[in-house]
Structures are given as structure tokens and as C-alpha cells.
Design a protein around this nucleic acid. Structure first.
Ligand code: FES
Ligand code: FES
Lengths: 144, 144
DNA sequence: ACAAAACAGGATAATTTTATCTTAATTTAA
DNA sequence: TTAAATTAAGATAAAATTATCCTGTTTTGT
């Protein structure tokens, strides 16, 4: 469904958010360990998310990643997915036609569009704060 | 969403079905041309689908691919997706956890499961015959 | 029997995705 | 001011996916 990069990006962001809620900044190493992802690859993904202003990065000793407390509730999954995988998952034809359109639909267009829109609204309405709080309270998990 | 291989497999199967309804067998070359897919790669995918008995292959002059007329209505998209991409799309965790489970869910589990089940039922209830007929009647398209 | 058409299967190659490594820049604390 | 911790960025490598090529086998018409 999502690329590995995107999966790591989502998990990392949730973990950063969970820490930011507690006022803690967290290092790449800590993130990779906690979400069980390859460190260097995760660094690349966090670079993207930092450039796209989904997370803040701070260099130097005691540096790491964080999210402004008052912004956490405004970040939705779609922000992360868009930054990493782009909008293909919303826009592309399920059968790979060059364009997904009503005018020249593929055979699964009508049905596929519904699933795709469900996914889209899931991503656009799910904010990172609620997910981070689930993790914080031990109701949801980021690895294994 | 689906792999390229799976996209080609679905389109090829629909096109074979559309021809089989008219009692016509169609060659690999004809299929690849019509669905705009790389011929040799499509051959590999049709090999899989033939092994899994989704389509029949016939060798030799006037050979090609076909589907038993009375079976067309029984083939659903899930048969094709399962043969090529396996069941990962139904079973795997959206965030890549090793197991998707209620006991140890990832933060998006509840919401993701709904989308995934929608997709599952779409694939399990959409038969190739109806799609082939849409293509036949010019209501849906397999390329461009 | 033979040649041609067509699929099967194995080997190889190109591309994309995933992952790692190395060096540079930044920040802080001692 | 120097050393250590930390992210940034570019280069490289490994793995997976996608695509092609070549040879073999089957079938049919002549
Ligand atoms: S044309 Fe295929 S999903 Fe819209
Ligand atoms: S555990 Fe992640 S989708 Fe079920």
C-alpha cells in the first residue's frame, strides 16, 4: 500500500509527536531503535519531512527531531504520505492507465475510486496527535 | 496499490475474457498490443495465471490464451491478485508491523482495516465477466 | 517430415526502491 | 577552543521489481 519509506515516515512522525507532547526531543538513533527501522534510511526520510516542515530538526549535541507542540494536532497522515509518496495513491488509475478519468475509465474505475476516496479521507482526517496519544497510552504499537 | 505485474495481469485477463465471450482465442502479441504492456513481461505473468488455472494457454499455431466460457463468470479479481501479488494487500499491516493483529495493533489499524476490507470485498465480488462486458461495449478501456 | 507460429522457461539486463557509508556542517558542553 | 554529539548531504551498494533475450517445446498446416 505505502512504500517502506512512507511507513517509516509515518511511524517516525508518530513517535516524534508522542515525545513532543511530553516536551522531549528525540534523536535519529532513538527513533530508529523505537520504530525498528534502518537508521541511515530513516535519516533520509526525516530529512524530507524536515524540508517539508512536517517535523523540525535540530543539529548538534542534544539535537534531534521534534514537532512544535501547538502544530501536532494540525498534522494529518496525508501530510506525511504526500511528502514521501506524493499523490499517486489518490490520483493514479488502479490499473495503471496514464490518466484516471471519468471520460475514459478503466473497468474498475467506479469501484476503485470509492476505495481510493475512503483511503484519502482516512489520511486527510487522521491527525498525528490522536495516533501519538494511542501509542503513549499503550493502546497501539510502533514495532513488532 | 497493485504491482505493475498485477495491473498487467488484470488487464490481460479482462481482455482474454472479452475475447473468450466471443469465442475467440487471443495471442500474447495481441494481448500486449491491446493492453499496451511489454510483451515478454506479460508472457511471464500469463504463465503464472495459466499455472494457477485463471486462464488457459494453448501452444502452437493458432494458440494463445482463453478462458472456458462457463468459467468466466466465476473468476473474480481476487483470483488474479492472489495469484500474482499474494495476500499481502489483505493481511499485512499498513505500517509494516510484522503481524497485523487486534492484540497488538499499530496506530492506524482500526481505520486501515476498514479500507483494506473494502478493497478485499471489491476484489472478491467483482467478476471478470462484468468487466469484460464493459470493455466490449465500449464503456471502459484497457489502455491510454 | 518439415516449417512456421506460438507459448514455456531460464538467463540476463535495466530500473527503482531500499539501505549503507563517508564526509561535512552545526551545536553544545567542558 | 576543542571535542563530542548530532543532523545534512552526496556517493555507493544491495535488493526487489520490471523488462528483455534466447533457446526449447508444442501444435498445426503443408
Ligand atoms: S481510470 Fe482506472 S481507476 Fe480511474
Ligand atoms: S496492525 Fe497495522 S494495520 Fe493492523
Amino acid at each position: 500500500m505505502f512504500s517502506k519509506a512512507c511507513e517509516y515516515g509515518i511511524k517516525a512522525t508518530i513517535y516524534i509527536a508522542a515525545n513532543s507532547i511530553d516536551g522531549k526531543r528525540i534523536s535519529l538513533k532513538g527513533i530508529a531503535k523505537h520504530i525498528d527501522s534502518p537508521e541511515a534510511f530513516t535519516a533520509k526520510i526525516l530529512q524530507i519531512l524536515a524540508r517539508e516542515r512536517v517535523v523540525n530538526s535540530v543539529r548538534g549535541i542534544n539535537g534531534g527531531f521534534e514537532i512544535d507542540k501547538h502544530r501536532i494536532q494540525d498534522i494529518v497522515l496525508a501530510d506525511i504520505v504526500n511528502a514521501i509518496d506524493g499523490d499517486a495513491i489518490y490520483k493514479n488509475c488502479g490499473l495503471g492507465l496514464k490518466e484516471c478519468s471519468e471520460a475514459r475509465p478503466c473497468p474498475v474505475h467506479d469501484k476503485f475510486k470509492i476505495v481510493r476516496n475512503n483511503l484519502k479521507s482516512l489520511l486527510e482526517t487522521t491527525n498525528v496527535k490522536s495516533l501519538a496519544m494511542e501509542v503513549d497510552s499503550g493502546l497501539a504499537f510502533l514495532k513488532l
